[in-house]
């Protein structure tokens, strides 16, 4: 029983991490129908820049966190300007945007490697004080609780932001139809830019939390989560913010439960991707997605 409880906690936690990564990812897709494959690189740079601020500039993490998040947001603006805006008018912008975002991801990763080296680096010990609780044989750390809470909070705040605020409404209008939004007087380019800003800032924040928890930041750390992030946004329903978090939890739990039930871990990733495959076939719109645009 303890075993299963601990595994559920593990799944809840890693699922929240996937969700955090996926929220920003899905936001851009929801608005532009474009996959931003540089999201993982922004995630990485967010974490590394926060590390630099703490280690080299000697800041407290509480100051470094917002600064690095802002930096990641600015990277998003850069991405939009360089890799997406020039292609927007093109007929094949879906594919070419994919490639230009890959090019940016390669450049970002090269910069990260040039500045920080290829080795894993970590935040200095004691950057945040971590408490470890053992409750009825289940181990939980304060960082884990923090990350789950941040994921939940983000889900609520972002959903409210999109539904209630002026900018949020404009974002939704652009997502529905750029033309219609423009006719209604929405500054489409501004809205797209701010979507990238928010999306990338979220990605950067996720990178910092990831780096803090796992004590290992490296230029290629985005790669292993990129594929899972893709799976998560499909699972949750592309463009859906609560869906990204729920998709993350579902993916995390499926991984953990595979290990718990089979007792071995060989099939962990295979099961997760098979589930993804099955969901695409049975319910292509994902758990919480809008159905219309995905099927022939």
């Amino acid at each position: 029983m303890n075993l299963l409880a601990q595994q559920l906690v593990n799944g809840l936690f890693i699922g929240s991490v996937y969700g955090l990564f996926a929220v920003g990812y899905t936001l851009v897709f929801g608005v532009l129908d474009i996959l931003n494959l540089a999201h993982a690189a922004v995630f990485t740079l967010g974490g590394l820049v926060a590390l630099w601020l703490v280690q080299t500039a000697g800041m407290s993490i509480w100051l470094a966190f917002p600064l690095a998040t802002l930096f990641a947001g600015l990277l998003g603006l850069l991405l939009n300007q360089v890799a997406f805006a020039p292609l927007r008018k093109r007929a094949d912008s879906q594919f070419s945007g994919l490639i230009s975002s890959i090019a940016m991801a390669i450049i970002f990763e090269a910069v990260a490697m040039g500045l920080f080296g290829a080795r894993s680096v970590r935040f200095p010990q004691g950057t945040v004080s971590v408490h470890i609780w053992h409750i009825a044989g289940v181990t939980i750390t304060s960082l884990q609780v923090g990350i789950v809470l941040v994921a939940a909070l983000l889900m609520v705040v972002l959903t409210l932001f999109i539904q209630r605020t002026r900018i949020g409404k404009a974002i939704r209008a652009v997502a529905e139809s750029e033309r219609a939004a423009m006719l209604l007087g929405v500054n489409v380019n501004g809205i797209i830019a701010s979507t990238f800003l928010i999306s990338s800032a979220l990605g950067g924040a996720a990178g910092i939390l990831y780096g803090l928890y796992f004590d290992a930041l490296a230029p290629d750390m985005g790669r292993s989560i990129e594929l899972k992030g893709l799976a998560v946004i499909i699972l949750g329903g592309m463009g859906s913010i609560p869906g990204a978090i729920l998709g993350g939890l579902a993916f995390g739990l499926s991984e953990v439960l595979t290990v718990a039930i089979t007792g071995t871990s060989n099939l962990r990733d295979a099961v997760a991707f098979t589930v993804l495959f099955a969901i695409l076939l049975i319910r292509p719109s994902g758990l919480l997605g809008r159905g219309k645009m995905r099927e022939a």
């Binding site: 303890n2 799944g11 890693i14 292993s224 290990v259 871990s265 962990r268």
Partner: peptide, 22 residues
Amino acid sequence: LSEQTFAKGDRDFSPQLTQIKS
């Protein structure tokens, strides 16, 4: 007692380690 595996680039090993601990 058992064999557990991970994939290159993994950062989270808690499911396997939980199994191992038990």
